[in-house]
Write a protein that binds this DNA or RNA. Structure first.
Lengths: 338, 338
DNA sequence: TTGAAAGCGCTAACAC
DNA sequence: GTGTTAGCGCTTTCAA
């Protein structure tokens, strides 16, 4: 663990130096009205000379407040996620919270780390990785620390959620792919189930089925570019039977396109139309120019922080489940773009 | 700020429930040897029943230790950076530290946030954004909180640093571009100076000059893909006068390539050889297949955390400045690849 | 306005 | 082994 060498200049030292009591020091730094201008000035001056900093942790102990919050994330080194976390963190900071960043790749890790967060008396937490067990959610509930889940299953009673509208996604993808008249569609989903990305694929499949055009499913080893490149081989084999494909992730789409062009000399969108999901920065890169469905990472993050913050100030209100709308972004991997 | 509704089950409650003293509770949770197995078991059982969690913040107040550390980062939504932060955070956690994530885009923000970190009694901090002022570094020194700078100017006495070897980079880029016999080189650097990326460009320029082949400089608006796409226009104009170009960032390189291919119908490497820097994941994508210079983000992060941790345990030792080696990655944007 | 005193949740001597 | 006491750095009654 951590040694801590702080030179221990405390409110006591400042008080002594300024010739006032410790209460006065406290008042000076919590802009209390119960202090005269002279006292405040004396205190501030003394504090500066001594290099004093209020210890917020000690303060929190006394006031029974905490401005620490937890952010639990997996795959932070991924374009969408990193954007999401960036704005989640900055929104937290803007609102006066201090985010502790916990990276967890497996459900087990999530479990351990989230549990640990309780020891730090966090005011709330935002989870954008595998969802923790209901056991943990319940503990959070009984400790009354708000937890908001991003794009995770909302069936866990007690947690607030922010998530994209799965049904809309399926309909939209189907619509975007259908505009040019194509009817033979496929969808790619990752092998390891993920509530949101597996859900998108399922939603698309449902819409296709309802339209009497059952979609073929390709299972990729993960959600990454490499996984897309990998499954692109199988897709190449089926090129003649397919009009369009919905990739549950932009990264997957990019990998697929590269494989198809490289090994199958396929032209996109002429030979196959492609629709991705996320609208990561790379989707707009000229080599891809991917038609996709945007989920707004910034908005998602802001919503999550807002929900958490509202729940912190009003712990007893009903859990809220906010649903986020998604937008079609037409670029050049579909034929009809309007 | 944050209300905190923790249901206040304290060591006192557990002690009462277990029929022992609070010291015993403390001992049970800090695996002290000074406790009998029976007592420990009783305590653990009582704690579980009550849903007790040790308050680490209160503990820290008493033990004068803190396992909180700060990570200050800019441009987290960028491939290299997100990877770097991911492993920095996970390394911290692995070592028992809890990273507070602070995102700061401007030097002013960095200043404010770093200062704020002192209020949380952090055991140390890792900065991978603009470097804070020497005033702050000095404050950190006097409070004896270690600060390690990644790829920032090391002239600030007192801070530890981890950075890539700038001289090696220039030589390497020159060498990689020279293998095919080309002699007319250029380099791209961002408008807004950055210690590391401006340094790379300067280093390359020096080596070129020393070889009697002064390099042309293109100034891009930033370090991003879009900036590369932008300056790619100017580079297209000079295509006939150039054999190779060193892009101080992979993102820049990718943007340049896309622009050159799209608007100038340029073939790479036939018409122009390109060498990037970083080796982000996207550099390996088939549409680019970029020859580049790898700086190992994982290693960099691990080094930074290690340096910080060593400095925490031994605050009085001399600041260490570790220099990181960089590796050539030959792919297909240069003609001779061995 | 100001200060004295109590106490947040915890651990660390110190005695038993 | 175990309990008692004091105290970490801070804020907050409560009197003055």
């Amino acid at each position: 663990m951590a040694h801590k060498g702080r030179k221990a200049v405390t409110s006591f030292d400042v008080a002594e130096r300024a010739g006032v009591s410790r209460s006065m020091v406290s008042r000076a730094f919590s802009n209390s009205p119960e202090i005269s201008k002279e006292s405040r000035d004396k205190v501030i001056a003394a504090a500066k000379e001594l290099g004093y900093r209020v210890n917020y942790l000690a303060r929190g102990l006394q006031t029974k407040q905490s401005d620490l919050v937890g952010i639990v994330v997996s795959a932070l080194d991924t374009p969408y996620r990193s954007r999401q976390v960036k704005v989640t963190a900055s929104e937290c900071i803007k609102l006066g919270y201090r985010p502790i960043l916990l990276t967890a790749e497996t459900p087990g890790e999530v479990e351990t780390l989230v549990a640990m967060l309780f020891n730090y008396n966090v005011a709330g937490m935002i989870i954008t990785s595998a969802a923790p067990s209901s056991e943990i959610i319940n503990e959070a509930r009984s400790l009354s620390v708000p937890v908001v889940l991003i794009n995770r299953d909302s069936s866990e009673a007690g947690a607030d959620t922010v998530q994209t509208d799965l049904e809309q996604i399926g309909r939209l993808a189907f619509d975007m792919l259908s505009r040019s008249g194509g009817k033979r569609f496929a969808v790619i989903e990752p092998e390891t189930p993920s509530y949101s990305v597996t859900g998108r694929a399922a939603s698309f499949r449902d819409v296709c089925a309802a339209a009497g055009q059952p979609a073929q499913t390709f299972v990729a080893p993960s959600q990454s570019y490499d996984a897309g490149y990998d499954i692109g081989g199988a897709i190449g084999l089926s090129l003649a039977d397919l009009d369009g494909i919905f990739c549950s992730t932009d990264l997957l789409a990019l990998g697929v396109m590269d494989r198809l062009r490289h090994d199958w000399n396929a032209r996109i969108p002429e030979d196959l139309e492609v629709v991705g999901f996320d609208d990561i920065e790379q989707a707009a890169w000229k080599s891809y120019d991917l038609t996709t469905i945007r989920q707004d990472a910034d908005e998602q993050a802001r919503l999550a922080v807002r929900v958490m913050s509202e729940r912190i100030t009003d712990p007893d209100r009903e859990p809220s489940h906010v649903s986020q709308i998604v937008t079609p972004i037409f670029r050049n991997t579909t034929r009809r773009n309007q």
